[in-house]
Amino acid sequence: MIALLARDLRLAIRAGGGFGLGLAFFLIVSVLVPFAVGPEAEVLARIAPGILWVGALLACLLSLDRIFQLDFEDGSLDLLATAPIPMEGTVAVKALAHWITTGLPLVAAAPVFGALMSLDERGYWWIFVTLLIGTPALSMIGAFGAALTVGLKRGGLLLSLLVLPLYIPTLIFGAEAATRGIGGFDNTTPLLMLAGITAAAVALLPFAASAAIRINLR
């Protein structure tokens, strides 16, 4: 499984854009928003957690179809299905690779973008923490959606339609935890819910996703 992770990361680096694309998208969203709502620091700081969360979510969505599609097209997925690694493990590792290449850079860069959105230090911290806890769920849920649509020629748009509703609870708790934390309120509940969603998604969704992949390989 480590071999698979190493290969996926290496592929992401060699293909170029693996790390950068989502990040660039995230940057553009963070730059566009002030143009749309105006430069008042107060307004920006108030909507920043929401914008950054939506931006991270959309950036994550951008690269989802790559999780399985390329491996499906070149036959690797067939071969992985007959390999000694259980399909659940393959799915989990590929979701992890997606998180490392897409989620983690977003988490690391979020405080910087927070500065663009007039957040203060507490804002940097909470954006960082909530994204760190929440983005693994985004990758895993996305991997499930990608597994459902892997056999389809034009799966990209459908993938968004399937995955975005599934992202709603993560988004709500993530943005709420960030907002409350920044406002200086107690955010234990949304933070725990966010962590719970991530834990449950990572623990259970590989089974659903691998079932979907097996169906698609048939």
Binding site: L4, L11, E73, D74, G75, D78, L80, T82, I85
Partner: peptide, 30 residues
């Protein structure tokens, strides 16, 4: 775990070298 399946698609990654492609499948199969 007795089957090695080889089909029309070889499951190769264009950006990896020949040795890397092969080493990957070797590691997957232990």
């Amino acid at each position: 775990e007795a089957i090695a399946y080889g089909a029309h698609a070889d499951g190769l990654k264009g950006t990896l070298t020949v040795a890397e492609n092969l080493a990957f499948w070797a590691r997957i199969h232990g």
